[in-house]
Design a protein around this nucleic acid. Sequence first.
DNA 1: ATGGTCGCGTAGCGA
Length: 261
Amino acid sequence: MMKIATWNVNSIRTRMHAVTKWLSEASPDVVCLQEIKATEENFPFMEIEALGYNVEIVGQKSYNGVAVLSKRPFEEIRKGLPGDDNDEQARYIEAVITGDRLPFRVASIYLPNGNPAPGPKYDYKLDWMDRLESHARGLLKFEEALVLAGDYNVIPEAKDVYAPSEWLTEALYMPQTRAKFRTLLGLGLTEAFEQMDGRAGQYTFWDYQRGAWQNNEGIRIDHLLLSPQAADNIVKFEIHKHTRDGIKPSDHVPVMGTFDF
DNA sequence: ATGGTCGCGTAGCGA
């Protein structure tokens, strides 16, 4: 079995205590991290490698940044989302890993937030989603187990937000955002959450402001998107909500799938 | 309508 998780940690250096605690409790085989807010120079490689993980990152100073951790060796690494050579933002890394039964491909995705919308930041978000769709279409042609994991900054449906009416003008929930997300799914991807749970009110993010956590005013924006070969092999899906209660928590919580790979 | 909280890095931006 392979446990594959995604977590937007909102700074790896500030979050190391929470991350190491969670790694030892949940013992994921593969972890996709977002918003590491670190470069190759200041990422804590030694501490994470000491816990038994291979580590690859796409870093950036102060903002963004993604990483993939794996107990198994990486057979292939791709850094950056194809489709725009001028894109400087660190938001995509992809790896191929072999499990007990099957090789699989996993991506750590930090999709742009896009606020305020409309505007240049929203245009960048929509362009990025088009590039992701194009790249995913190519990956699906391999007909292999594929897990596109990350912070999508997309609330798929009304059931995934505490107060849909308050989010109508937010880049995370606007109709065009959700339409592009559905187009991505339409390529032949399945949300692990929808296959295993699908219930309303299962959130992965609560804002630091306004007592959002205490009032359970959350949204579900961290997703595992699966190719048919991955969807056929998922046996468990979990949202590790308890981590939002810890000391200096991230505003996101980990999401983890267990696969018979 | 405003302000409310974090993280980075030490002002103000991004979320």
